[in-house]
Design a protein around this nucleic acid. Sequence first.
DNA 1: TTGAAAGCGCTAACAT
DNA 2: ATGTTAGCGCTTTCAA
Lengths: 338, 338
Amino acid sequence: MSGRRREAALTLADVAREAGVSEITVSRVIRAKGPIAADTRRRVESAIRKMGYVPNRVAGALASATSDLVGVIIPSLTNIVFPDVLRGVNEVISKHGYRAVVGVTDYREDVESELVGALLAWRPAALIVTGCEHSDETRAMLRGAGITIVEIMDLGGAPIDIQVGMRHEAAGAETAAYLIKRGYRRIGYIGHDLTRDLRARKRYGAFTQTLCEAGAPLAGEIVTPRPSSVEAGRDALAALLALKATRCDAVYFSNDDMAIGGVFHCMARGIRTPSDLAIVGYNGLGMGQCLPQPLTTVGTKRFEIGVAAGQAVVDRLSGRSVAAEIDVGFELITGATA
Amino acid sequence: MSGRRREAALTLADVAREAGVSEITVSRVIRAKGPIAADTRRRVESAIRKMGYVPNRVAGALASATSDLVGVIIPSLTNIVFPDVLRGVNEVISKHGYRAVVGVTDYREDVESELVGALLAWRPAALIVTGCEHSDETRAMLRGAGITIVEIMDLGGAPIDIQVGMRHEAAGAETAAYLIKRGYRRIGYIGHDLTRDLRARKRYGAFTQTLCEAGAPLAGEIVTPRPSSVEAGRDALAALLALKATRCDAVYFSNDDMAIGGVFHCMARGIRTPSDLAIVGYNGLGMGQCLPQPLTTVGTKRFEIGVAAGQAVVDRLSGRSVAAEIDVGFELITGATA
DNA sequence: TTGAAAGCGCTAACAT
DNA sequence: ATGTTAGCGCTTTCAA
């Protein structure tokens, strides 16, 4: 990191000289703050335009101890879930003049910790982080930052400030209960890396426990180390079905991407859903609902989480009070595949 | 925008006092710059840890006139293409200590212009923008910024500094030539909003022109005002096929999302591909290759564009020279649908 | 309605 | 190996 030293960019002083006023007057015009004579404003504005002056927010932020940056830390950009969330955040905050600074952790706690430090160093107005599990170090930094912190996606743990999300355990349990109710008894699971995706793990845990309690423990499972994708789901279902002993009548996938891969595998092999094999996903992606048979899945509110998180930030920064926990919920979508 | 004034965060001076050294020594330890006695380093580091000091990069950036921020302006987060690109950028720059500040234009020129100003105000080390078409105002700001500017996705126009992308006209023309070669003569087009997505428009233009030159002008088209999606593609194909006069034997979709929607429509209606209707997409998404019949499409290098752009930034900032134009190319993927 | 002075927290440059 | 001085470009505060 270095950033070549730039050749003397224009400063307020340059504009002030050109407009025949003082620096502070130019500053006031730019920030639309304080009383300015109409004529003065015009002179300053034309000088700015003419010279192509771009204010320096680094200096401004230092002097005023305020910032229009909002840090956003997400685990992945591969999983469409997070671009969706980011879109929601951005939609709200950009309307209020804030910008997102994005960090991607790749689901790694050490990277998260490093990113939190790096983003806090820019003294953002607020920080949005994913999940409610953090290392002690991360937690200490977040607590000590003295700014609005929003934890998104998941509810629970020891909230740092504001949480916006849903209960993944409830989603897993409800999915299991649904399959049991529909009469499935040999139920398998296909997932992606659970050691890292803690929310998928929570769903998995509640899912399997609910099955056990119903007297139909998990019949088999494949967990790939790959990130979730349609391809990974397809390959994993092929692998699961190849395990002779398993003989599932239904499979719960860690998310819709994976489940759609499963559906494609069934299509290619002439396996009928749900009569030969039932399939359930998680997320409620539009694409799953476009399949010849709409996917049975759990609809989640990804965009809404982003919006709610962004709104929480904006509200706080405007001095309005914000609920400490915002549960956006989820919804079982009973499609045709289970 | 405001950002509540924070209550006196720790400064270098606090740490210096605690460690019994001067501010500059602490600064040197933090930045790992200049010679520091092992013992001094230990004392300073332990003071930092003990107090939970987080350096202020706003002040640091102002003092040193350097930054670890890289602005990235993309049109959309809905279209998976851009998260892919962003992922590539991030992969490279984060390894070198840079962070991405993201702006989303929603394909609007006025928003782009505003974002360029807002990001340049943070005096980033470099700025990555999408496309090679910009308003005069934007172009002037980019030219005057005096930093590395990378235009991504598309090649052509009047390059500002560095371009990383491919030739969309060539992709459109090659797709048309392929369909003609395969014997299709009643070819339709299904697209999303072309007034905004200039690259899709370029492909469309070259595609239709090539068809004309081959004596098989476009047989029909549907352009939805919606953003591209599987649903939009499915609905648009239904609409196109409902136009009695059209009777297409092949359809070119503006991208794979749309094309996959078309495939789903065919599946649901028992329309066989490619015998009843051939389908071609654009992008080469993994999912399209997972369909029971792999999608015929044009493979693009989204992630690679991000990586190359990130690398160009890093190279420039390290004083290495960088090619002014990097053509990552594309590749016709002859699947089973056309 | 405008301006002068002081200083935000850090780092470059120059001592020592 | 460490410290001193000056100043980055802006905004706050106070004055006129």
